[in-house]
Structures are given as C-alpha cells and as structure tokens.
C-alpha cells in the first residue's frame, strides 16, 4: 500500500514536472511602486521584470533587478539603491511559487487567482500569498497583482535622520504579459 501511494505520488508529481513544456515567459513585465510622504511622493517603475509560468504545474517565478527601477527623481533612485535596497548586495527581488487555482489555460477569459510561495526582497524571504488576475487571450497570458510590502518585514531600514518621512508599507503594482517561452540560449 505504502509503496503504491509513494510510486503513485512520485510519478504523478514527476509526470507534471516532465511534461512541463507549457512554458510562458516575459522579460519586460512592469512592476511599479508608490509611497506617499508629507513632502513629496515616491514612485518608481521597473519595465524589465522577468516572469516564467509553467501552465502544467502552475509553478511561477518572477524576478527583477532592483537597479532597473527608474525614478523621476534620480537622487531618490540613488538612495533607493545605496541606502534602502542595497542593490549591490541584494541585486534581485524574487518570487517563487505556485498558482493555487486550477485554470484551463486553453480557455480565453479573466480569472481571479492567488499564488503562494516565497518572496525574497533585500535578502529576506517571506512566505506570501498574492492575489491577482489572470487574463488568457490568444497565445498570451496576462498577470496582474497589487500587494503591499512592509519595510520592516524585509529589514529595510528607514533611518531617523531622514527629513522626509517614508511610509512603512509600500504599494506595489505588477503587470506582466507572458508569451510562449523561447529559449535564447
């Protein structure tokens, strides 16, 4: 009995893994964030977000280079990289997880989804579940999700000497459009 369960589970799992040819990806997804402060607002956008989704297993990985966040105020950008995110030490933010809902990726439409996994920012990993929407249209998969990041959860320090007060939670918006994966190796 035990063996049967084991073999069954393993083969079932690996079947999904091996069959994982249904890959969708992008390297120009858009991640932006916004934070309101009493003096001026802080906003930045990264247009080079990378995402890959395996539609047979629901595995998803999203990552981006922190240095590619573009700020209208370049001094803020420098401070973001140098003092807060420390992008030389922690160059990437990464989410590795799985979409929880069973979705028929062959059917066009928009579905509410959630993804659970590991969110790594500033070298600190946190288990997170992000809620969002998936839009399936001819040959492409659109993913959108809005979530908040609490700075303290990721050991991002806001020093007391800073004149400009920075909100403790940052609103993050993501808009990714995935196309069938083509290896560029």
């Amino acid at each position: 009995m035990k063996t049967i369960v084991l073999i069954f589970s393993v083969s079932f799992a690996s079947l999904g893994y091996l069959k994982a040819q249904n890959l969708y990806s992008t390297s120009n997804g858009e991640t932006s964030f916004f934070s309101e402060t009493p003096v001026e607002n802080i906003a930045a956008v990264n247009k080079f977000g990378q995402a890959i989704l395996n539609t047979s297993t629901n595995d998803i990985v999203v990552q981006m280079n922190m240095k590619q966040f573009d700020f209208p105020n370049k001094l803020m950008q420098e401070h973001f990289n140098e003092n807060y995110i420390e992008s030389a030490k922690y160059p990437k933010a990464v989410f590795k997880g799985k979409i929880n809902e069973k979705i028929d990726f062959t059917k066009n439409g928009t579905y509410d989804i959630s993804a659970t996994g590991d969110f790594n920012l500033h070298g600190v990993s946190k288990p997170r579940t992000f809620k969002g929407k998936i839009t399936i249209a001819q040959g492409s998969i659109g993913l959108t999700t809005d979530f908040e990041v609490a700075l303290t959860e990721h050991n991002i320090e806001v020093p007391k000497v800073v004149f400009m007060k920075i909100a403790q939670t940052i609103q993050v918006k993501n808009k990714y459009s995935l196309a069938p994966y083509v290896s560029k190796k």
């Binding site: 893994y17 990378q50 990985v61």
Partner: peptide, 27 residues
C-alpha cells in the same frame, strides 16, 4: 508514506521552480 510523498512532491516543486529560475536567467 503520505508525508514522504508530500515531502518528495514539495522538493519537486522547489526543483521545478529552480529550473524555471535558470531558464529565466538564461533568457
């Protein structure tokens, strides 16, 4: 055996996600 299977499966999840990460990095 269920726990073992579950552990194996979650290892495979991690493995799958790591493979995906590699593919992303290559691209």
């Amino acid at each position: 055996s269920v726990v073992t299977a579950w552990l194996l499966m979650s290892t495979i999840d991690v493995k799958a996600q790591e493979d995906l990460t590699k593919m992303l990095e290559e691209n």
